[in-house]
Design a protein around this nucleic acid. Structure first.
Lengths: 234, 234
DNA sequence: CCTAGAGAGTTGTTGAACAATCCCACAAGA
DNA sequence: TCTTGTGGGATTGTTCAACAACTCTCTAGG
């Protein structure tokens, strides 16, 4: 070890984030954007021949990208029929929130007074709340939605569990799918304040109350989302 | 509808389990067995050329199978280096149990008195406990381990959540990996009784106590597993 | 109205080829 | 001795073209 430790800190993580990716992964990232941003509506089919021609990659590589997104829940693969942008049923949404309750509830409950003892722990959450309020003030409802997602991702990250982080990322990908077509303001606006309230409870170390508030929060959010979908469907 | 309903019951599910699968999925299933049964020790590399020759499938198909198992956590894929049987670190094990606590704890807590009101609900769990005790009596410790896993899978299944079921399946696959090389009796024997006790609490509708017992159960199991690994490693 | 079958189009799988990358051993230099 | 280049050999990453297997649709016939 001939170099200073401070220089080495975090280097590995930094390098891991760089464009060190296979072609399939880059294609997957591209498709991921198109899907989550609504360019590809749920239910639409992705033709191998057509896409491989447009993207200038072989069918085999494209298939690898399909598999990646399939395991993220964004695409569904039907044998001999092709891949389609996933369509979330109401039951799926209920299930997604079922898992969110389990994960986020457990995280909050187990936090206990840790946040009260180390205030810096919650800084990322505070930043997300600030981003959300700022975005709401300028009417950027898509920005509010993003801040919202970041808030919950950072909340789960407090547990320091790679598997919970991965599960959360997958759930959020599915949620983005469900948000397609919904009125962004109606969808995201009410939750800026609730995030702030939840953060206060966590920061105060009142874990039980925070867990209860979170539960009610998620129930309301699910009901809201289902109502919006029902309204926008017939 | 010209046939009797009784004949049709469950046929769809049965047929879905049959070899109705792509070649890649069948290869994945085959490798999955080899890995979880210990024929392929953690850390060993799976050569594309060699395996595709032995299994009589093309490299491309084999790669699709690799992707499937990679997303189950059984294999790890290192770019330009190949695929290896996953090696779980102690940190990974802690994380697996972290997620188990979150999921199973939530399931038990939320069950409330449902099991007390509909006793048939717990029949699969009772069967698993019976299998476990029978296997223990005849010294079949691998059988005890299997019954154990089924017990917890069925426990989670009570929630009726496809996503929790999938997550549990993945966690159990990783656990099987960690069990490799450990003394099967020491690993599984102590938990037959604890499963029975937990079942009693759930059946009685004493959800809070059951959740507490489960938590202590999982903590003990994790500590036990880590100790066994540390002992077998020097 | 229902069934069977032919045809078109898509996906599933293969095998070979070439490019890109890693690994190891060895040599050159400080 | 330690570090730093430089090969070659092996393995993986990606492409391509072809064929097999399958689904879907439409039509003819009962």
């Amino acid at each position: 070890m001939t170099t200073t430790q401070s220089f080495l800190d975090g280097l590995a993580a930094e390098v891991a984030g760089l464009p060190r990716a296979s072609t399939a992964e880059r294609v997957a990232e591209l498709l991921r954007r198109r899907v989550t941003e609504g360019d590809l509506p749920p239910g639409s089919q992705l033709s191998e021949e057509q896409l491989s021609a447009v993207l200038q990659v072989s069918r085999n590589t494209l298939r690898e990208a399909f598999r990646l997104l399939g395991h993220e829940g964004l695409l569904v693969h039907r044998l001999h029929r092709g891949v389609f942008v996933a369509e979330l049923s109401d039951d799926d949404l209920v299930d997604v929130y079922r898992v969110r309750r389990a994960i986020e509830g457990d995280v909050v409950r187990r936090l206990g007074t840790a946040a009260a003892e180390d205030p810096g722990l919650l800084d990322p959450l505070r930043a997300d709340v600030a981003d959300g309020t700022a975005a709401a003030r300028r009417g950027d409802w898509s920005g509010v939605g993003t801040a919202n997602m970041h808030f919950h991702a950072h909340l789960v990250a407090l547990a320091g569990s790679p598997r919970l982080d991965a599960a959360t990322a997958r759930l959020q990908a599915e949620l983005r799918l469900a948000f397609q077509g919904a009125d962004a303001e109606a969808m995201h606006a009410p939750y800026v304040q609730r995030n702030a309230d939840l953060l206060d409870l966590v920061a105060a170390g009142r874990a039980a109350e925070a867990a209860a508030a979170l539960e009610e929060y998620l129930d309301a959010s699910l009901a809201h989302l289902l109502a919006l979908r029902a309204a926008g469907r017939p």
